[in-house]
Design a protein around this nucleic acid. Structure first.
Lengths: 212, 212, 212, 212
DNA sequence: CATGAATGAGTGTTCATTCAT
DNA sequence: GATGAATGAACACTCATTCAT
């Protein structure tokens, strides 16, 4: 046995993350209520009791899953939106590309599905999700649009509804991947969707003079 | 008691519909697993046992709720899309307006939330929802777009992705109303969203020559 | 099947009492925490779920057991103590005889044991037991003693401590029967104990002139 | 740090006693089943695992608590009862005074409450308690009474029941302090109770000629 | 048809006990 | 010796489903 490499190390620091990862899988597959702690524990490679060393209740575990999955992603959007100097077309293309990339490569779609599903049973979670995630992301996009309107780059219109026009199709794509594709629907290429949609949205939103 | 038309006679025939209506409320509020048959029965004004006179299991009741809620709506979209003679701009505006109207006045948003939430636990339902609802609606829109592209009205591009561009923001609006607004987010006017978005989408999708 | 004698009658009215009786047995044997609802249900001849049709929690069932067992007994003592005209010696003899009789023929000893055991975990119960049972019984006895002291029948001294002198040995007898006797100790005849003790207590308590 | 007398050395030997002391507190507050080893360990200032270095099971720890708490007290009673030369009145007064003193200043009341509560679940403990504690104490008192009866000091009557008359009120006082007082009942002064009761009991028990 | 009392399998949670460190 | 992370059996409580009335 090589020294410094104990066969079985106490995992106190790694465990919570492992459990959250396992829980994300199970919650995403089954939903909150249908997810069994036995399954989560088994998938995390621990006993059921061990879950309670790190999370007080199933509720708490679910909340931790959502928070953990979301925090890193929201930063990216906000940061990109702070590139005030860029023309709107460039910035918008950048934002949607980042979003599509994240949606394609992370579990954020599954988390969104969970939040949609359980918003009624987790009022706190819905509020957090609104205040810290969707609200912030939307505010960033709305801010970008408002500034572009002020500079005459984007045509008039409610900036929040413009933001919905920009983001909505991506949400549809994510839901499609999470819900329809597993049921046999032909898959959607999120990156291609983002690329084609941003062309449409930009052409539709840019003021007359701003079009090529 | 007036002979021939006792009040309870009509009840008997209306029961299944009343139960489905009550179930829709409870399922929409709580989700499938958290909905209790006691609550549904109480809200329908019948005994718990009576539910089993009309539906074999909770599963069946849920399926009936989803089917009942969608069938009438899908027809409207398909019918509108058969107006082949209309210019794309007119037809597209019509389709989105109908969709927004339905979304604003029916429970279809709540049902969509339920299907999204429970797709993992109801494979059959997800397939039915795809084959009979979303698939058909999407196919109708895609057909309209393809014909418009063939006539040179709509610029090239994957017609399905174009359809996502058209419909996506409305889904976002519905999710917003069902999930974010109850958590304190400012509400969205679905009709205004549809009106502004179709302007954007049309400008973005129409071929060069087709723009005003 | 004889009419009017259904093979299996709905027991809605009889059930709670049956369950409380079964619960009393099990609680008395094992104590609150060690009593299993499965056992109680089995002994009552019902399913575990049925318990919850009548009692919200195990806690509630325990409380019901205590209340039910006590109410009838306390009346007897209070009633006897209202015989103001009787000489103290007669009344005291009567009270102890009644108490011994009740202790010998009812489950009140087992209930007392339970209350003693669980007073720390059931603050409400301990308070109820004090206010409605022990307190009232003691007050009745103290009242009798005070009146007898006023009439010069009983010698001076704190009437509450005199009451302890009268009642204490009976409690010891009950505890003995519940705790020591099952462990192999020779049994005590509660009636004989009461009879001999009241002679001692009366002789000890009566004023000089009152003794034979 | 002074060499040769490190502070932790004394700890090592004191550990079992510290644990038993902590366990007594927790058992007395919560009862056996509701007492958590975590609490006991925390209160003793050791880890949960450390408990198992000194006691095999929770059962054993409970047994140790009871044994430890009673042994010293029983000696006092037996020793006092060996003063054969003293008149009964003197000896009885002495015994009750000692008992009241011990009851007022030690945890013996809490232990008695525990034994009463758990006698059903700890048959061994109930037997030990009977054979080594209550039985011995009672036998000592009974012996004193029998000798006094032989000398004509105490009137006839079952000596064991006489012993119950002497001791019972003190038990009631202890139960009162442990159970009723914490629930809001007015407290009892155990020493005053013993003093007043022994007057009563002596007057009641002494043979005609023996009274002052 | 309709009721609602009764069932019992299923699950979140606790906690005495173990053992690698 | 001492720790405390980990275990897993045990149990209170829920609720879809049944069926005697």
């Amino acid at each position: 046995m090589p020294p410094g490499q104990p066969k079985w190390r106490r995992r106190k620091e790694a465990r919570p993350a492992e459990i959250v990862a396992a829980a994300l899988e199970v919650f995403a597959e089954k939903g909150f209520a249908a997810a069994k702690l036995d399954d989560i524990a088994a998938r995390a490679g621990v006993s059921k009791g061990a879950l309670y060393l790190y999370f007080e209740t199933k509720h708490d575990l679910f909340t931790a899953v959502v928070r953990t999955s979301v925090a890193p992603n929201i930063e990216a959007v906000e940061e990109a939106s702070r590139n005030l100097a860029l023309p709107f077309a460039t910035l918008a293309r950048m934002l949607l590309t980042i979003a599509a990339e994240r949606a394609a490569t992370t579990q954020i779609g599954a988390v969104a599905k969970m939040v949609i599903a359980e918003s009624g049973n987790f009022p706190d979670l819905a509020r957090v999700w609104h205040e810290e995630v969707v609200g912030r992301a939307l505010a960033a996009v709305v801010g970008v649009i408002e500034r572009a309107q002020a500079r005459g780059e984007v045509r008039p219109g409610d900036p929040r509804l413009h933001a919905f026009s920009m983001i909505g199709p991506l949400l549809l794509g994510v839901i499609w991947r999470e819900v329809m594709a597993p049921a046999g629907a032909p898959p959607v290429d999120l990156r291609a969707l983002a690329a084609q949609h941003i062309d449409t949205a930009l052409t539709g939103m840019l003021a007359e003079g701003g079009r090529s």
